[in-house]
Amino acid sequence: MPSPHRFANFLTLSRIALVPPFLAFLMSEGGPGPISRTLLVYMVLSDLLDGPVARRSGADNPVGRFLDPLADKLMVGLGYIVLSFKLGLIPSWLTALILWRFVLIRGLWGLVFLTSGMGLGSFLKLGNALTKPNWLGKAAADAQMGLFLVVFFPSLSFLHTAGVYIVAVLTASSGIYYLILSARAVRDTEVLLRPQVRWRCLGRAIHRVSSTVAGLVWGDAHEA
């Protein structure tokens, strides 16, 4: 019998694997249809189950902590893009807001990493501590998933307009909250505040990027 961790990771990986066929059927059916609805129900149920299953062992599951939010972001992010820009079932401005929140937060942390001079391990620990799920972020994620279900099941269509604005408010609020945490981290570590540190770290960032690009180009040249 597989361990709880392995079974939980299997549920999460199966959810990731089903994202491409889910999107393909969603588009081929011209909107929510029987197959895409079935896949969505499975993905939602697996999302609800993988956490409790993993916690049964009482041990840490770093693989699951990485894969679970990745699966959610793939399903919700790509699903919203198709529902908005391909099918017109969700306002495009709402999808843009969700994507803006994700790109802004991750982009800011990438900038902090490049300019702070932190080691990768220290940076990941700081980032994980500050972006640890909180009630506001969880509420935004739950609302986004809830709107998904409203769009897919006509019996819930009366909740559509209210759901759109609830998702918008929670997404924007959680994004602002994480930005405040990021700003405090930058202030507390004095990153980018002192000119001599800023320019020295910017030089390190340029060196990192240029070294990576040069390595890729040089490697490709040798292979050619």
Rank of each mutant, 00 (worst) to 15 (best):
L104S: 09
K86F: 02
G58A: 05
K138R: 12
G33L: 14
N128K: 13
V103F: 15
L108I: 12
M75V: 07
L97R: 04
L45E: 10
L78Q: 03
P32Y: 09
G33H: 09
D47V: 07
R65W: 11
D72F: 07
L99E: 11
A139S: 12
V82F: 05
K132L: 15
G33N: 08
L78T: 12
L26H: 06
V76A: 06
I81L: 11
I81S: 05
N61R: 11
G137P: 02
S46K: 03
I105K: 05
L87K: 00
G117N: 01
D60V: 15
K86Y: 02
I35R: 08
D68T: 10
F113H: 02
M75S: 10
G33C: 06
W93T: 08
R106N: 15
G107T: 01
L111W: 01
R101F: 06
F113L: 03
L89A: 03
N61Y: 04
S122T: 14
L49G: 15
D72I: 09
G121F: 02
S28F: 14
G127N: 09
G79M: 10
A71Y: 00
M27W: 14
I105F: 10
W135V: 14
F25S: 15
D60Q: 13
G121P: 01
P34E: 04
M118P: 00
L114N: 01
D68R: 05
G58P: 10
S57L: 05
P34Q: 10
L104D: 01
P133M: 12
G119R: 06
F66S: 06
I81H: 08
A129Y: 12
E29M: 14
P133S: 15
A59S: 15
I81K: 08
G137N: 08
G51R: 12
L111N: 02
T38C: 09
L126P: 04
L83T: 03
V53M: 02
L111K: 00
K138S: 07
G110K: 00
R101Q: 08
D60G: 13
L104K: 00
T115G: 00
G58D: 11
K138E: 02
L114F: 00
L87W: 04
I81E: 02
V112N: 00
F66Y: 11
R37S: 06
D68W: 02
S46G: 05
I98D: 07
L108F: 12
L120E: 14
L120Q: 14
T131E: 08
I105W: 03
L136G: 05
P52L: 03
P133R: 15
F113V: 00
V76T: 08
W93H: 04
M75R: 04
G79F: 06
S84P: 10
R55G: 03
